[in-house]
Write a protein that binds this DNA or RNA. Sequence first.
DNA 1: GTCGGTATTGGTAACGTTACCATACCTGTG
DNA 2: CACAGGTATGGTAACGTTACCAATACCGAC
Lengths: 344, 344
Amino acid sequence: MTSSMAPGTRQPTIKEVAASAGVSPMTVSRTLAGGVNVRPDLQAKVLAAVKELGYFRNENARSLRPGQASGLIGVAITNLGNPYYGNFALGVEEVAAKHGKRIVLGNTGEDCGREAQLVADFIGRQVEGLVVVPSGGAAEHLRADRLGDTPIVLASRQVAGLDVDTVLLDDVGGAYQGTLSLLESGHTRIGFLGNVPSVSTGQRRYIGYEKALAERGISPDARLIQRDQQDVEAARSAMERLLDLPDAPTAIFSANNRNTIGALKEIGRRIRSGAGATGFPAIVSFDSFELSEMMPVPVTVIDSDARQLGREAAELLFARLQAADSHGPSRMIELPVTVSMADR
Amino acid sequence: MTSSMAPGTRQPTIKEVAASAGVSPMTVSRTLAGGVNVRPDLQAKVLAAVKELGYFRNENARSLRPGQASGLIGVAITNLGNPYYGNFALGVEEVAAKHGKRIVLGNTGEDCGREAQLVADFIGRQVEGLVVVPSGGAAEHLRADRLGDTPIVLASRQVAGLDVDTVLLDDVGGAYQGTLSLLESGHTRIGFLGNVPSVSTGQRRYIGYEKALAERGISPDARLIQRDQQDVEAARSAMERLLDLPDAPTAIFSANNRNTIGALKEIGRRIRSGAGATGFPAIVSFDSFELSEMMPVPVTVIDSDARQLGREAAELLFARLQAADSHGPSRMIELPVTVSMADR
DNA sequence: GTCGGTATTGGTAACGTTACCATACCTGTG
DNA sequence: CACAGGTATGGTAACGTTACCAATACCGAC
């Protein structure tokens, strides 16, 4: 039974456990470390005292000792509310757990300043490595030599001029294939909804789109290109502008999840206000989303496995952590994407 | 310029910074703490050395000092891949940031053992408080006296016999209202898709459903009740069973997000295999989901603000942290939900 | 009975940091 | 010019833990 004390009650320390068990702190430490060379009866006493006092080892103090690792991997993602990144984090966690490490997760909200803060804090907490989905602004704070030799892996997006391990999707190829499928269906006016070019996925997916158009001798029409939307509502409004053009596009290439949802919301709005369910542009969406098969217009999905992306990023990090030469040349992996055609 | 050393390169310490700047560690510490009573020229030297060496304060060592708080709040959620919990975590983070704290996020995967492990680790890392969405199994490890006086707030779900601060949704009321709306439309055979009763939301939402039925003198039909689905595929298959009943339900009350998606997927499957879009049960869904307005069958949504849930949980925690009497009686908050009728 | 070896236990120091105290300096006042 | 009162700086100890070493107890072998 714990004595119920004033608010300021502290965690018990190993000394208190030792006193309560009638042994030295070292015996407690050894017992908790597995009990080698500790008499079973003392182990029992120690464990009883631990339970009685509700003792937990102070991991901060533990990781202070020389040579002791903190057991933490810092993970910074841009938007926790986006299930894509949630699943990404799950992939990182899965691999980290396999190596006996825990992840510390932080959200940058696409804000470069918060990202810098977060990374600094991670390092201050002695993480053994970092997995970061960069927000896309200036990235001085991600340079390897500014991180005190903490290894870092970038995921999903790359940063120009930053020579570190990176895992990307096949953005260019996926966008190219998706756009091509629209061209092959006879579309020639294809709208583009996407991210700002300063974010590498925004840039790379645009390149794939443009490449497919170029092969058919079509030069991009600036009025069909909307690249400034960060959230669903902005995407919806961009879609509204495209649909209101005198010569509206007959198909849309949407470069991500948020844009696709926004575009579909605008279509839904028009359907509910009386327009029939026909005459809307076909949609190709980079990134899948739940219930895409239930949409009133055909949606072709360029899908990737967020969890796998997280796994690969983590594997890259652990490879570097275990490498004899942790300063070896940086590696870059591109994960394939799958294109699931709308079946109508 | 950092000397590029062998893999084992360590973070620089305050002593090294001090040596490099030609001052004592105390002057470095004071400078980093805001610079009171430090000559400007020395501050400049220190800051230059910090930058030069890429020094970050060791937060673990810092929090070891007596009276120093770790600045961390531990947050345990059940499923990172579910955007509901992602947004929940964002709400917690928002309030934590307001108080100058950071969150450490962990995923339990609805696994009670992992939850216990996670909480123990949080405490070992000296978090100042915990926000937990309990997984629903045994919860010995969440008892306040097992947590070394670290305050805890439960969110979304309560745990029987656990007398701690809790934030819930108005599960009973929402389920009652949603079910009532179906009854008022004339439905009498209403299926139930939900969580296992050991999870409090599963239990409470079932109670609301049953209460509405009882008011109309309808006793629940066991064949219409499916309460074992944890993921989308299981939910789809449960929906399949309901639809295949000889006297299939004319409406479905789905007690959460995952079940609603599964149910809709089954409907989609049938529509695509040739059935018309009519003759399917009306759906009421506890929890909203993106694009619910685009579904081929009307979906009434019982919506709650996940982010607000996170905010309220965090506020409860900080109230307790700042209270003079941190052992005061536990509080319970129920957040309202809104019912958005399908508009057809 | 003595010796080498092993099993068990405890003491000490060190990890990186900062609160506290002591010291040295500086400025203005009587 | 002495002295009070402030400002600036450094030394020391302590936070909780465990690696390392020292000490003790015990065992079997000679």
